[in-house]
Amino acid sequence: MKLSLEHFDKAFENRIRLQIMSVLVANDSYDFNSLKDLLKVTDGNLASHLKALEKEEYITVTKTFLGRKPNTSYAASDKGRDAFKLHLKALENLIKQQK
């Protein structure tokens, strides 16, 4: 059976990217370290996936300083929210087709 992969977003093929996006869609913004604790991934891994999402313009990045420590927080952009919804729809359709 051929499955329709319409709306199936390549950017979300990776599980961690999809997870990052779900957190950002559910919250106004999330900072790097909290995201790392929540998803239980390494610094480098998280950073590279965030970079990829940033390149797609799915997320926006805000860099601030908490005292001397740099603090980077991420938020989902409108484009990212739409893409996330479409991707979920695509997953839903996949399930429907397989029934």
Binding site: R15, L18, Q19, S22, V23, V25, A26, N27, Y30, L38, L39, L88
Partner: peptide, 10 residues
């Protein structure tokens, strides 16, 4: 997993 993450993060 998406569902649980959205819930746990918020």
């Amino acid at each position: 997993s998406i569902r649980s993450l959205m819930e746990r993060s918020a």
